[in-house]
Design a protein around this nucleic acid. Structure first.
Lengths: 221, 221
DNA sequence: ACCGGTACCGGTACAACGTTCTAGTGCGGG
DNA sequence: CCCGCACTAGAACGTTGTACCGGTACCGGT
């Protein structure tokens, strides 16, 4: 009866969806996608497991919110885009996009859900608006938009998934050498040893932008 | 003692890793990534759950093998590539690559692991060999290889993840219209309603190839 | 004809998970 | 004073991946 524990009496700020998401991101950063557990999350928040379900319907909600939170930090520039600077503007956007995801590598694994969070949409809006300002529209606009989107996503996923330890990378390249009959080119050009991802990303983005530039209106060139 | 069941006496072919992987792919096709369970898999194979663990170390092994199996069907052309046909050859390869993954939509979600299965490596080998034949080498070769890889992967992941039902797509576009103050461009250009993915993929691939072409040796043009 | 080992099979068990059900507790407004 | 709302959480259920261990069929050697 008496002498039951004093019930902790509302310490700290009350639980909220925002606090849950914030802690979820931290947990994901530390332990990766498999480390995110409702129980662990509750423990870190100093709350009961089931309490989380008052603020959130399901674990997937937490994941979706955490994913969009990754893109929260940047205030994408607003206002009418400058058509003469479209290449730089898009390059900046995509570099930042990729950097945000690589800062939280688990996010690359979560792109199986459609791009519908507010922060992601804001980036998409800026991307497409810039392309419109170059004179693109219709099918060519769609193609350009998605080509750029595909490229960043692909580059980020590839980067995150090929981020092996040095030993693993060397072991993989060694195996390629052993199989050099089957993979002569990969073996000769050190497919697995590449490590300047940043330069490769920039160069590839240059290719894509060049390809698109040939299709824009004269205002952009 | 007596009258115990006759023990079924080795019906069918003995379990093997190949049979497990084959059935895993079928199960993934029918039920998606969450439908793949060691218990369900065992049931479909008519074996005990733990028996699977004789042929396979862990569930992740099954997943890795199933992923590479998706790329098994195509015999990638071997022999020295023809530099005058590099665009067509690469376009064919990437179209097939994407088609193989879309035939098994769960595969797009599994690209978090590096590209090391034999079938994936064979495709990579062909891709890079074709690029070498155009005269690329060094950093430019690396950039071109990964740009193409990134583009297919991105396109496939994006396609698989944005494959909503018609209602969902319309609901999403309706929400965009409601928020047209924040997303004027996306709202005006029907961002969510695009459905000719095939054309967009082809057009985007054209951009990328054009961008790369400007960087190849004269032999390729 | 027997033995022993290798290859393979599968029941039981366990810890961890996501989630539902239900029973609370404190606080602000009538 | 107390009702109801916002919030908290324990207990429990069903499902998951996997370790442990006791089996059975078959095969080569003696």
């Amino acid at each position: 009866m008496w002498l039951r524990p004093p019930r902790a009496s509302r310490e700290g700020p009350p639980l909220s969806q925002a606090r849950i998401v914030e802690e979820a991101v931290a947990l994901l950063d530390e332990q990766g996608i498999d480390g995110l557990t409702m129980r662990r999350l509750a423990e870190r928040l100093g709350s009961g497991v089931t309490t989380l379900y008052w603020h959130v319907d399901t674990k997937d909600d937490v994941v979706d919110l955490a994913l969009d939170a990754v893109f929260a930090h940047l205030q994408t520039p607003t206002g009418t885009p400058d058509p003469t600077r479209w290449r730089e503007d898009i390059a900046d956007l995509l570099h930042d996009w990729r950097a945000a995801m690589l800062r939280h590598p688990w996010s690359a694994a979560l792109l199986q859900r459609p791009t519908l969070g507010p922060n992601l949409l804001a980036r998409m809006e800026f991307l497409q608006a810039t392309l419109v300002a170059t004179g693109l529209s219709g099918a060519r606009l769609t193609a350009a938009t998605w080509t750029l989107y595909n490229y960043v996503m692909g580059a980020t996923v590839a980067r995150a998934s090929h981020d092996l330890s040095d030993e693993d990378r060397e072991a993989a390249q060694r195996r390629l050498h052993e199989l050099r009959d089957r993979y002569p080119t990969l073996s000769a050009h050190e497919y697995m040893l590449k490590d300047d991802w940043e330069a490769a990303f920039t160069a590839g983005l240059g290719y894509v932008l060049n390809g698109i530039a040939a299709d824009t209106g004269p205002a952009a060139r």
